[in-house]
Amino acid sequence: MRFSAMQSGPKIPTAIIGTLSKTLPDYFTHADLDSMFLMAGAPEPIPDGSKAAKVKAWLRKINVECAEPLKILGLILDEFMELQVQDQDFWSGETDNVAKVETSKERVKEMLAKDGLSFIRGGTISKGGALPTLSLDESVRKHGLSSVDVEIKRAVAMIEKDPHAAAQYAGNVLEATLKAYLDHKQVAYGRGDALAELWKTASAQIGLRASDLDSKDLKKIASGLHGIVDGIAHLRNTKSGAHGRSEEQRQNINIKPRHARLAIHSAHTIAAYVLELIE
């Protein structure tokens, strides 16, 4: 099915189209590009011309004919962002080639950021800036925490589509992170412990309770973190998609994408800090 531009979601920015038309041809053959775009859901027929012309024309075509251009862009970028020098048969794997591909990836990230977008591992394009999420994503990859990774992807992917579910997953990210931290520190916790109890145990281990701190300013920060965790737990338990609702409850609970994004970024900021302490 084809969609008009009026029906389409947020479009791929022109600057990104220009950047990718210059970047992707350096790393992929015509056959590779065809496979990447088609697997991501780009519309047929395949555009003619050079690799650069093909990429530019196809991304523009996605903007015009597809309902969710940024979703398709995310899937295309996922293959590029995971690219390693050793994946390319025609590369020698020398240091300059490694530097080149990493520089290209950073350039794409910078161009996305200029339009308020960011790439999240797994093929998601996030709107509104995602520095806490990116920092958390790096820590998760470093420590191989797949349980946290799953919840990050779920939360970010559902912000616009189902903010109620996204709010639930924001709490899940925090819960999975606290469990990972406590497991690493070999600190016992109950299997049925709620988020508030996990935070109580973890914050005591970290030394983040207000009573542990002498500075008035730090006490306020510690109290603020406790308030964030408590708020996210309450949001997940009473207003997210975690439980079935009556029709009256459904009408009275109105979590918008901006609310879900607030919960997600707050949870990710705390989670990123906690994972730093695993070191």
Rank of each mutant, 00 (worst) to 15 (best):
G18S: 14
A52N: 15
N63C: 13
G93I: 06
E65M: 12
T19W: 01
T14V: 09
G18R: 11
C66S: 15
K51E: 14
A40T: 04
V85A: 11
A15Y: 03
C66R: 13
G49H: 04
K61E: 03
T14K: 12
L70V: 03
A31L: 07
M39V: 02
L38W: 08
P45E: 13
D96I: 06
I17S: 02
A40G: 03
D48S: 14
V85F: 04
K71M: 07
M36C: 02
I12Q: 03
V55C: 10
V85H: 04
K56Y: 12
A67G: 08
D87L: 04
E65T: 09
P13H: 08
A53S: 14
H30F: 01
D32L: 04
P13R: 04
S35Q: 12
S21E: 13
L33A: 06
Q7E: 15
S8P: 05
I16P: 00
T14S: 14
K22T: 11
G93D: 07
S35K: 09
M39H: 03
D96F: 07
M36F: 01
D89M: 08
I16C: 10
M36N: 00
K61R: 14
S21L: 06
K22R: 12
R60E: 15
S92D: 14
T19V: 09
G93S: 07
T19Q: 13
A15E: 15
D78R: 15
A67N: 07
D89Q: 11
K71C: 05
V85T: 11
Q7V: 05
W91H: 05
I17R: 05
V85P: 03
G93Y: 02
A52F: 10
C66Q: 15
V85C: 06
G18M: 04
A15K: 14
V55F: 08
I62Y: 01
G49P: 01
Q86C: 05
Q84I: 05
T95G: 02
W58N: 01
G41D: 04
F90G: 10
T23P: 02
A15Q: 14
V64D: 15
I12C: 09
V85R: 02
N63T: 09
L75P: 00
K71S: 13
F28M: 08
